[in-house]
Amino acid sequence: MHRRRFLSLAAGLAVAGGCGRVGGTGAPVMNRLTIVAPAARGQGWDQAARALAAVLVAEGLARMVEVSNYPGGLGSAALGAFVTARGPFVREGRLLLTGMPMVAGAEIANAASVVKSTTPLARLVGDWAVLAVPVKSRLRSFEDFAAVLRRNPAGLVVGGRLEGGSDHVLYGMIGKCLGVDARLLDYAAYSGWPEAFEAVHDGRVAALLGSARSFMPEIAAGRLRPLVVSSAERIEGIDAPTLMELDVRLEYTDWCGVLGPRGMSREDRDAAVALCDRIDGSPRWRALCAANGWNRVYLSGDDFRQWLTTETGRTRGVLGELGLLSATATSYRHKLLG
């Protein structure tokens, strides 16, 4: 296989609790906190938003936490609703749950990047991906898949979630690593996994690429055969090698993190990052991550901002090669790069 390196990582609910301050953590007690989630209730990372709310109250880090849902548009609806906060963060703060789809959505819309329109605080968890085919597929291994893709990039239809979302971008990354022209890749987007599973089983798509934890039941039931996973190490319960094992230098997770409003004061930003640090260190949070199959990929503060800046550029590059950026956006990017 070609050796290329392409690393990437990859309605409302109100929860009320008692007062108090957690000593020695550096995280102040919030009076009221709103978490804006870019997904409908029960979908996407909404469950993570509600887990965050429960942990914040249980740990005594916030007296009341509300989750506000703004689904739609690769996170654009949530980003648009996330206006600059008023007053001190510790009195009435707002956090925006984010991830790769929101980063991609801003780039596709030729809007201000997520990193520039908010204050990056922390990357929390991620979900590894798996490439899988029906058990009767003639593609017995990832090597078979790669060989067909190199010979005829448009000959395989791969299904996943929204166009321009995490699965689509990962497919573009895999294509790049294999030396395939990403513009020729054929990708079918589905609103949910039930529709995608139906499509792969009736032959409308040759393979599915997406959430490892969502594929587990289909794999365990013997309906899907995993070909490869995007994690650094093999995933328990999925009998498939990693991309890295197969000399495809790519590690990727569909990550989830939190952002603060643009223009936060240094004091408010430090308080918000301390809050994230406290969450990641919470046994309650870690137990919820384990129970839900979320992989902790924690990174906070300036390290997260730097990573997000790099990841935004990498994502934009793949979106351009997939043909998902407008001519205006592409021309503007070339102008900026000189």
Rank of each mutant, 00 (worst) to 15 (best):
145 F>Q: 00
48 A>E: 09
71 P>K: 08
95 L>M: 11
70 Y>G: 01
130 V>H: 00
118 T>Q: 07
168 H>A: 07
116 K>A: 15
170 L>W: 07
124 L>A: 03
118 T>V: 08
101 P>R: 01
48 A>I: 07
151 R>F: 14
172 G>L: 10
153 P>W: 11
153 P>A: 07
58 A>K: 09
150 R>C: 07
84 T>W: 09
83 V>W: 07
140 R>S: 14
165 G>I: 03
143 E>G: 09
95 L>V: 06
112 A>C: 12
167 D>C: 15
80 G>C: 09
110 N>S: 13
173 M>H: 05
75 G>R: 02
67 V>L: 09
173 M>D: 02
123 R>S: 05
88 P>A: 07
155 G>T: 08
174 I>H: 00
135 V>Q: 13
102 M>V: 04
140 R>Q: 14
99 G>W: 06
69 N>T: 10
105 G>M: 06
74 L>M: 14
118 T>L: 08
158 V>D: 01
73 G>A: 15
76 S>N: 12
48 A>D: 04
103 V>Q: 03
160 G>H: 02
51 A>R: 08
169 V>L: 14
71 P>E: 11
54 A>I: 04
96 L>Y: 03
72 G>C: 10
53 A>L: 11
157 V>W: 03
110 N>E: 13
168 H>K: 11
138 R>W: 14
132 A>K: 00
89 F>H: 06
131 L>Y: 00
77 A>Y: 11
149 L>N: 00
117 S>G: 11
91 R>H: 14
111 A>T: 09
106 A>L: 09
64 M>Y: 06
69 N>K: 04
109 A>E: 12
110 N>W: 04
89 F>G: 00
146 A>G: 07
117 S>A: 15
135 V>P: 06
173 M>V: 12
98 T>I: 08
64 M>D: 08
129 A>C: 12
61 L>R: 08
101 P>S: 09
78 A>G: 10
48 A>M: 10
125 V>F: 07
137 S>F: 15
120 P>Q: 11
144 D>M: 02
114 V>R: 01
175 G>P: 05
49 A>Q: 00
74 L>R: 07
145 F>H: 01
125 V>I: 15
100 M>D: 05
61 L>K: 04
98 T>Y: 05
152 N>R: 14
164 G>E: 03
47 Q>N: 10
147 A>L: 14
72 G>K: 13
93 G>W: 04
164 G>R: 01
140 R>V: 11
165 G>P: 03
134 P>M: 08
134 P>T: 06
170 L>A: 11
109 A>P: 08
154 A>D: 14
149 L>M: 15
53 A>N: 06
129 A>M: 13
57 V>P: 00
83 V>Q: 12
108 I>S: 00
171 Y>V: 02
149 L>C: 05
72 G>W: 14
117 S>H: 13
146 A>R: 02
88 P>V: 02
145 F>I: 04
90 V>Q: 11
